[in-house]
Structures are given as structure tokens and as C-alpha cells.
Nucleic acid binder design. Structure first.
Lengths: 245, 245
DNA sequence: CGAGTCCTTGACCATAATCAAGATATGTGG
DNA sequence: CCACATATCTTGATTATGGTCAAGGACTCG
């Protein structure tokens, strides 16, 4: 039988990337957490249009948020990493209007959607944290929309790669040499950037050739970060403790 | 001297599109509201990169949220209508990373950013409402990202027009005949959809020619709504009371 | 009636999509 | 350990959607 991670032992909380909880908050969240869910790579965590009774938090693994059109065209909205919230839209509005898919095996903390409204009354600080997450996600979407709407293929790649690396670094996923194990294929990149696979491949290859980045067998590493940030027009993110749920 | 609208007389609250406030909430917001601001069309309400001490609520008028690149390319993220919140990102994170510009003359309710954190403790119900707004906005951005990333020009136009009309209708801005006064130029549409002005014009013109929509002198009207929704792959939005701040 | 915005149209061009096929892993069962 | 199957990545050739450049027309407003 699988052991469930207690919130008090939460491996995320122990990384200094996340802000500490008060005793009260910790106890509250422990009670709120209704279970843990394991999903394996390539499976759907939540489905577009479904009115799931759950809200999740990512404990480990990578996922992606995505919307598809009837004929199969698909747009990846963003990538989901440990510490992220899944299903807030469904909790606030009615049903989910996007899907979430696991990129690697994932472990999720499960909460009952019905309990969420109560959180705001019981633990206002946590309510604040939820808004913080929403604001952060909105900012991310803003940046992606600029990429997809107004940037060239090369700029989009630079931006996407920096966004992914920054996010992963912030939660401490990088190796000692700054390299990063990223379970993202070129098809994923294409779908996230509104490009075709072929064009993504050619552009990426060119950038690897110029030494801007390294990309081998799912391991990604920034080559010339300065020049990459220049192409992307993106400043390095100021480090700060992330609020966790 | 200009009269300030009291929250108890808020013209928005009187429309049945918005949910009613409790006595306590009303009193609280009245105290929280630190002023009112008039901005005229074509001026910036908030500027990218600036750390404004204010958060706003739209009382009347249209605006747009936008991000620009160094060389002038710009992407409109979404349009802002009465009842919308401006500046939440700045309140939660550090500075604004997008600008807001007035499309028409606007009246804004002004709140102190420093007070926002306290709202969650004093009026959890309002905190919940803030998250609701964030979730709704995220959903909107998701849909726009799909448009810009994966849709043809014609599909993008159909989707954008439906999104705008739906949003305006929901807050009661439509005329009796279903027509709508929209202060949006084709250049705005182009910037919102990641298209050039020329191509937007041609595509729009074709769609007007087919009777899908009407577009004359800033007044927009749906022609064949069914077919338009078919092109856009968008269901009509279920009506429901919007939480107001 | 002149200045400014906004809309419209034509000609040409470029970025990126599509189609097609082959090369490299990666993994699975015999 | 090999044969086969499946993902993933590469590369070339061709096409198309939409961008850019240019210029003229329509409307509004002092």
C-alpha cells in the first residue's frame, strides 16, 4: 500500500523556494487535503468540459495545460510544475474549459472542490495565496500571448525556454551545472508556441548550432543566457519565496 | 466640482447582471474606496513596469490591457469593461507587467493597493470574489491564446467578436436590437489577434459581406450568430450573476 | 477646407505550414 | 541479443497564409 505524504513532511515546503506556513495553516491544510493521486505519464488529469469535484496541487512531476479544437489542432497553455494549482477555474466558475495532461508520472494532492469556498473564511491568508497564484498564472499567460501573437519563431523559442527554465530553477529543479531535465518534446514546444513541428525543429536546431541553448535527449541547458534574454526581451526573474498551498 | 458616486448608488450594482452585496460588504467597500478617477480616451491608466500604489475597478467606459515589445509591436491581451478589475497583478506580485489604456472616457473607482491584503481577512467573501475574477480572466486568456496560436484569421475574428459581444451583453451594454456600440478600431482587432491591419481588414470585410456580422462606424452587430459560433467553436455563455467588487 | 484617423485596395514578398520520407533513439517480447 | 514497433527528430521540396509596402478614399472635427 502506498503511503500518503503528510503536509507536515511536504518535500516542497522544505525547499527554501517556498514560504513557510504558520502552524494554523499547516494544520488546516492537512485536514483539507482529502488524498493523494498518482497519475502516470501521458494520462489526462482533468478533462475539458468535465465538472470535476476535485482541485489538485502538484507534489511532483511535470504536466501541461491544454485546449484543443474539434479537428485536433491543439494549443498548450502552459506547463505545470510542483507547487502549481490545478482546477481553480472549475472551482470558481462551472466546469473546466481546458485539460491537464501528465508529462511525467505525477503525484497530486487532492482537495474537495466544495471545501474551497470555505478556505477564504477559515484561512484568509490562504485565500490571499490562491489569488497570488492566479495573478502569477495570468502574468505567464500574458507573456505567452505576446510570444504567440507578435514574436518570430526564434523569439518565441527563446521566450518559452527562458520561461520554462526560470520556473524550474525557482523551485529548485536544476542540476548543479545549471542543466535541467525537461520532459518536453519538440512537438510540445510547437504546440505551446503555435508553430508546426517542422518549423520548431529547424529553428531550435539553428539556435542550438549558434550555442544559444543545448538540447539533448530531454536535457536542456542554457548556452548563452545573456544573448537569449536579449532575443526574448526578458529580464531574469527576481528570486522570492513562492506561496504554497 | 465633480461628484463621486457612492457605492450604495453604484449604477453597476443596480443592474441585475451583478450579484447583490450584503450590508456589511457594501459598507466595507464604501470605506475601502479611496476615490474616483476620470481618464479620457487614449490615455494610459497604468503603465508597464510602474509600481502603482492603486488598484482600480471600472465604473464606466472601455479600456484595453496591452503589452508591447521594444520595437513597437504590440499585443492587446484583452478588453476591459465595467465591473472589471485593474491592477490585481501589481497588488499581488511586484510591478505591473502590462499597460492599461482607455478606449473611451472612463470612470474608475480607486483603491489603495496596500489595503487589498487586508480585504481577505476582513471580508473573506470579497476575497473569494477577487479569485473569481482572476479565474474568469484566466479563462478568457486561455481562449485568446488558442485563437492566436491555432486559428485562422477568420476563426480568430469570429472568436474575438463573440467574446467581446458576450462580455458586453452580459453587463447589459447592448441596444434593444442586439447592436452594440464598440469603440474598437480594426487596428485594435489586429493587435488583439496577432494579425496585421491589412489582413484583418480583408478578412473582416469578407465576413461582413457574407452577412456574418455587421460593422459600421463603431457599431457592431452579430449577423448570423449560429454560423459565427460554428466557425468559432464557441457555445453561448450561460447567463449568471457576476460578482462585483 | 485642411488635418487627422480610419478604412480600403493592389502588388509583391516572407515566414512558416504542409507533405513526404528517412534517420535515430527507445523500448518490448521472443 | 536480436527483430520489430513506436516515438522522436531531421531534412528536402513545395505551397499558402498572412505580412509588408504603397497609395488612395472616406469620414470627422475644428
Amino acid at each position: 500500500m502506498k503511503k500518503i505524504t503528510a503536509c507536515s513532511d511536504c518535500p516542497l515546503r522544505q525547499r527554501d523556494a517556498f514560504r513557510p506556513f504558520s502552524e494554523g495553516e499547516l494544520a488546516y491544510v492537512s485536514r483539507l487535503k482529502s488524498g493523494e493521486m498518482q497519475v502516470s505519464a501521458r494520462t489526462r488529469v482533468v478533462e475539458e468540459g468535465v465538472n470535476s469535484p476535485h482541485v489538485f496541487t502538484v507534489l511532483s512531476g511535470w504536466g501541461l495545460r491544454e485546449k484543443s479544437l474539434a479537428d485536433g489542432r491543439r494549443q498548450i497553455l502552459n506547463f505545470v510544475l510542483p507547487g502549481d494549482l490545478i482546477g481553480l477555474q472549475a472551482a470558481m466558475l462551472d466546469a473546466m474549459d481546458h485539460s491537464v495532461e501528465a508529462l511525467t508520472d505525477m503525484t497530486l494532492c487532492v482537495f474537495a472542490r466544495a471545501d474551497i469556498a470555505q478556505v477564504f473564511h477559515d484561512q484568509p491568508g490562504l485565500g490571499h495565496t490562491v489569488v497570488w497564484h492566479a495573478a502569477r498564472n495570468e502574468r505567464l499567460l500574458d507573456a505567452t500571448l505576446v510570444s504567440v501573437g507578435r514574436c518570430t519563431a526564434r523569439e518565441r523559442l527563446a521566450r518559452a525556454i527562458l520561461i520554462i527554465c526560470d520556473k524550474a530553477h525557482r523551485i529548485g529543479l536544476a542540476g548543479a551545472d545549471g542543466s535541467l531535465s525537461v520532459p518536453i518534446t519538440q512537438q510540445h514546444l510547437a504546440d505551446a508556441l503555435g508553430l508546426s513541428l517542422v518549423h520548431t525543429n529547424r529553428t531550435l536546431k539553428a539556435m542550438v548550432g549558434e550555442g544559444l541553448i543545448r538540447w539533448r535527449a530531454g536535457r536542456m541547458q542554457l548556452g548563452d543566457e545573456t544573448r537569449l534574454r536579449d532575443i526574448a526581451e526578458m529580464e531574469p526573474a527576481a528570486p522570492s519565496a513562492l506561496p504554497l498551498i
